[in-house]
C-alpha cells in the first residue's frame, strides 16, 4: 500500500513519513508541492497533503485529483497549520476525507491513517 506525503517542508515530510513507517507503512513516496505530487500519483493508495505550498497548493491538488474519476475514491488527509473553520470547510468541500491541524502528535497522525485505511 503506497502512501504519498506532500509538503514543501522536508522536516514535515520526514516527520510524517517516519511516523507512518513506525506503524508499519513502508511504501512511502514524497513530493514537495502539488505539481510534483501529480507526477508521483502512480500506484498511490492514499495521500496526505499540506495546504500552503509553492507552485501548486494543496487545495488545488485535491481538486485536481478529485476531478480524475480514477482517483475519486482515494483517501486524502490534509495536514496543515490552517485550522480556521472556513478553511476546514473549504478543504472538506474540495474532497479531503480528514483534516489534521499542525501541530500534531505522531500518535494522532498514525491513528487517523490507520482508521482511514481499514
Amino acid at each position: 500500500m503506497r502512501i504519498l506525503v506532500v509538503d514543501d517542508s522536508t522536516t514535515m515530510r520526514r516527520i510524517i513519513s517516519n511516523s507512518l513507517r513506525a506503524v508499519g507503512y513502508e511504501d512511502i513516496v514524497e513530493a514537495g508541492d502539488g505539481q510534483q505530487a501529480l507526477e508521483t500519483l502512480e500506484g498511490v493508495s492514499m495521500m496526505l497533503t499540506d495546504w500552503n505550498m509553492p507552485n501548486m497548493d494543496g487545495l488545488t491538488l485535491v481538486k485536481t485529483v478529485r476531478a480524475n474519476p480514477a482517483l475519486a475514491g482515494m483517501p486524502i488527509i490534509m495536514v496543515t497549520s490552517e485550522g480556521a473553520r472556513d478553511e476546514v470547510m473549504e478543504a472538506l468541500a474540495a474532497g479531503v476525507n480528514d483534516y489534521i491541524v499542525k501541530p500534531f502528535t505522531k500518535d494522532v497522525l498514525a491513528e487517523k491513517v490507520k482508521g482511514m485505511l481499514k
Binding site: 514543501d8 497549520s81 490552517e82 485550522g83 491541524v101 499542525k102
Partner: peptide, 25 residues
Amino acid sequence: ELANIIAGGAKTELSKEGITFNISI
C-alpha cells in the same frame, strides 16, 4: 516550519475574533 505552525495557530485563533488573513510561505 515551526514559524509556519505558529503563524497558522495564531491565524486560527484570530479568525474566531473575525480577523482573517492569508499567511506567506
